[in-house]
Simulated assay, not measured.
Amino acid sequence: MGLLERRAVKAFQDGSYPKLTNEINTLAGYPIEFEVNWDTLAVEEYSHLYEEAFSKVYFTPLINAIKEITVDDMGKEALKESLKKVVIKNEGGFYSAPSAYSFDGGVLTIDHEPCSNIDYVNDRSEALGKLLMKNL
């Protein structure tokens, strides 16, 4: 990871990341642990897209899914009992929603290329919502 990538990651970590994770935790009604492998997200030559891409690929779909789940107390309770941690990484070369998500032992893993299909937020939101609801 070069200087441009490190600066762009740092800008996201200091700016949007706390706001997005706070929104997720507020919607969930409890603190969810986040583990982000920033080094794998920092794709060379795409640092200019990190702000938009990280938000749209990793966080907005999760926000949308949690909104769908927590519309009632039953959903809030099921989420709190089941989802303990979110792992975000880019290791498997996945760029489509169905293959990018897994849920096991209370851990949601999002393994998606950060700069592929950035605007497919609805597809990711829908796939993530279905996966979580199936496992709650």
Rank of each mutant, 00 (worst) to 15 (best):
N37R: 15
F94Y: 14
K76I: 10
L41F: 00
D73I: 05
V36C: 04
I110F: 00
K76E: 14
G129H: 07
M1P: 05
N90C: 05
R7S: 11
V43P: 07
I63K: 01
S125E: 03
Y95M: 10
K19T: 00
L3R: 11
I24N: 07
N25T: 11
N22M: 12
A11E: 03
K84E: 11
P18D: 06
I69T: 06
E68D: 09
L108G: 06
S102L: 00
Q13E: 06
F34Q: 01
S55K: 06
A127Q: 10
E5F: 01
N37H: 15
D104G: 04
G92N: 15
D73C: 05
A65L: 04
A8F: 02
V107P: 07
F54V: 03
E77F: 10
N135A: 00
A11V: 02
E68I: 03
S99H: 14
P61G: 00
N64G: 04
R7M: 13
T70E: 13
F54W: 03
K85G: 07
F59Q: 00
A28V: 05
K10N: 07
F59M: 01
S55H: 09
N64T: 09
E68G: 07
E44G: 04
D119M: 12
A100D: 03
D104H: 13
I32D: 12
F54E: 00
K19N: 01
V43G: 10
S55E: 11
A42I: 08
K80P: 01
G15K: 06
K10E: 10
A127F: 06
D72H: 09
R7C: 09
L83W: 11
I63P: 02
L83E: 02
D123R: 08
K85W: 13
T60C: 11
V43M: 15
P98E: 01
T70H: 08
M1G: 10
L3V: 06
Y101L: 14
K80A: 15
E126Q: 11
T26Y: 09
G106N: 10
L136R: 04
A127W: 07
I118E: 05
E126F: 08
A53F: 09
Y17L: 04
I110M: 09
V87N: 15
S96Q: 12
E81Q: 15
K85R: 15
G2L: 04
N25G: 13
Y120H: 13
E126A: 07
